[in-house]
């Protein structure tokens, strides 16, 4: 995928004959001092990342409120409550799954369609790619504010346009409609990141040998058949990346939810990451730490299942 991703091409370097060794050490062997180079990174990473992660496991079996000097050991109580007796968590979980499904399906399909249409490096394609990619660089809060206005029930762009063209029966309260709110946020998420996934697909599509299409054409294959039997199987590795990344992204959509749903978000927009944050904000450190672990295990297992599914359908990915 290097064609559009990394413009790096290392310069040619003259190779000296390796027989002239000024020092006794072979230049092929690693200099021992090389082991010192990762030390700063390692120290910071262990101190401020690894240790807190382990600390989280310790908190998760306590009822610590974040302030008291002591905390009660509660065993697996937090986890039992999460799974059996926590409507807020269950609500956030179900919202998150709905959100994920819509985002993964639409973002994968749209990004592939746009990529297929923009595979060739013509001037207009390159220009459109940079336009479609643009929203990705904005902050989630910015994107949330733009879409707050688009969805505004009274003054918003969608309802204004529907009114102007006489389709006011389709006007909606959007985020104000609790049954639909999470899906509207999902659409915003797709608008936000579809361009990024499109670029991944374009890199994959540009690797497909043109001869495959040429010979298919001489065999009289239709465009749809070519897409179905050449493009789709050939971009399977890109699809795997897009789906995995989109899935993780939809669990991390914390900022977008806070921007569109308020802080703390209303319950129809609460997802797992915002739920954990609320637990933290309400001083339920032990409980929120347990939720965090469940959250992490959930993401890991969904990613794992996806990878298995992709491998099962495409053995060569």
């Amino acid at each position: 995928m290097s064609t559009t991703l990394t413009p790096a091409s290392p310069p040619e370097t003259p190779t000296l004959p390796t027989s002239e060794k000024p020092s006794g050490r072979s230049p092929m062997a690693a200099h021992p001092a090389l082991w010192l180079f990762p030390v700063p990174a390692l120290v910071l990473y262990v101190t401020f990342f690894v240790i807190p992660t382990i600390q989280g496991v310790v908190y998760s079996v306590t009822d610590w409120d974040g302030f008291s000097p002591t905390a009660q050991f509660v065993g697996l109580d937090n986890f039992i409550t999460i799974f059996t007796n926590d409507d807020l968590f269950r609500n956030a979980f179900s919202n998150n799954i709905k959100f994920m499904l819509v985002v993964v399906v639409f973002q994968t399909i749209f990004s592939l369609v746009l990529a297929v249409f923009l595979t060739r490096n013509s001037k207009s394609s390159v220009a459109l790619r940079s336009i479609f990619f643009f929203p990705t660089i904005l902050s989630s809060v910015s994107v949330a504010f733009i879409w707050k206005f688009i969805y505004d029930p009274n003054f918003g762009l969608i309802n204004t346009v529907l009114d102007a063209v006489g389709l006011d029966q389709f006007q909606s309260a959007f985020l104000g409609n609790d049954a639909q709110a999470i899906y509207w946020v999902a659409i915003t998420q797709v608008w936000f990141h579809v361009g990024q996934m499109m670029i991944i697909y374009i890199a994959g599509l540009q690797q497909i040998p043109q001869e495959l299409y040429e010979s298919a054409q001489t065999d009289g294959a239709s465009r749809w058949q070519q897409f179905r039997h050449i493009t789709l199987p050939m971009v399977a590795p890109a699809t795997a990346i897009v789906m995995a990344y989109t899935t993780v992204q939809s669990f991390k959509a914390f900022d977008l939810i806070l921007g569109l749903g308020g802080n703390p978000p209303k319950s129809s927009l609460d997802i797992l990451s915002t739920r954990i944050y609320s637990g933290f904000a309400n001083s339920q450190f032990g409980y929120a730490a347990a939720e965090s672990l469940v959250f992490m295990a959930l993401i890991a297992s969904i990613t794992w299942i996806q990878r298995r599914a992709v491998k099962a359908t495409n053995p060569d990915v």
Binding site: K252, I276, F280, L293, F295
Partner: peptide, 8 residues
């Protein structure tokens, strides 16, 4: 994920 260790 960030939410997994942000509290500690």
């Amino acid at each position: 994920p960030a939410q997994a260790n942000m509290i500690p």
